[in-house]
């Protein structure tokens, strides 16, 4: 986006509010919706990827060592990863204010 959304006037919008920039939704921060965030205990993680498959966002990716981590810019804190983790490696902790 050329400007932040709070600076866009009605005259700036494309006809039919069409979005002409592919992938611009990736700039939309949904991470500030959450009241709790996932924290992975790497000693229990078996790198099975179930959290990655279940994440509805989907904001979980693999790091260089093969562990799965949520991208907190997008994570809404739903807790599905924590609920589905077969080794209970993911704990939801309250988001700091």
């Amino acid at each position: 986006m050329a400007k932040p959304d709070y600076e866009i006037t009605w005259k700036d919008l494309e006809i039919g509010c069409i979005v002409t920039e592919p992938g611009s939704a990736s700039q939309y921060k949904t991470g500030d919706w959450k009241s709790q965030r996932p924290v992975t205990d790497k000693t229990r993680c078996i790198k099975c990827g179930i959290c990655y498959l279940f994440c509805p966002e989907p904001c979980i990716g693999q790091d260089a060592e093969g562990y799965f981590e949520a991208n907190l810019f997008y994570c809404k804190g739903c807790g599905i990863c924590s609920k589905e983790c077969p080794t209970s490696a993911i704990r939801m902790i309250p988001e700091e204010s």
Binding site: G16, C17, I18, V19, T20, P22, S24, A25
Partner: peptide
Amino acid sequence: PVTMGAFA
């Protein structure tokens, strides 16, 4: 590619 009917 364009997105039509997007969310606002």
